[in-house]
Design a binder for these strands. Structure first.
Lengths: 83, 83
DNA sequence: ATACTTTATGATCCATACATCATTAACATA
DNA sequence: TATGTTAATGATGTATGGATCATAAAGTAT
């Protein structure tokens, strides 16, 4: 499973999916990441933004890593891009 | 070119490499991303952390995207992990 | 419907990222 | 060396992320 992210919201949903795949509650993830449940909720729902530090803390707890790569042309185009 | 990032510093160096590959100065990237040169400098050098918003602004200006994926076992292991 | 668990929301406080301006250091190059 | 460009540093003010506590809303049972 590999998710493309171009916005903080994309990261939020990717993290939520990974958390659920790991069968963790927000509280469970909070415990193992040191990030508060309330903060996780805000990140997953895209309410406000987040710090990179926090994202990496969550990635570490979920055994995820980020890959920085050239934008893939034509893939995952948002509706606004073509309308 | 695809860089694995597990820390804010990794992101900083990936962005710097991408900027140089695009033959842009920090000021040039600042102009097209809306992020100030001073801020770009701090992100690239890993001085302090950054907001996700800012990272995505820079990614957009450099035609980069992030991929969230399961940690690749055995690859890119830090010294601290095995010492 | 009731009880329990999980997630979302709201307020406050503190830390800090970013904008902004000024300046210095580094690095080219004439 | 002197000049010009690029990158880094420092200070200040504003905006906001995250910790923390409390609570409400949603979801999932029994």
């Amino acid at each position: 499973m590999d998710t493309i992210a171009r916005t903080p919201e994309d990261i939020g949903t990717a993290l939520r999916n990974a958390r659920k795949a790991a069968r963790l509650t927000q509280k469970g993830l909070a415990d193992r990441s040191g990030i508060w449940q309330e903060t996780i909720s805000k990140i997953e729902t895209g309410t406000g933004s987040a710090k990179l530090d926090t994202i990496f803390d969550l990635c570490a707890a979920l055994d995820l890593e980020l890959h920085v790569s050239p934008r893939s042309k034509g893939a995952n185009i948002a509706l606004e891009d073509i309308l």
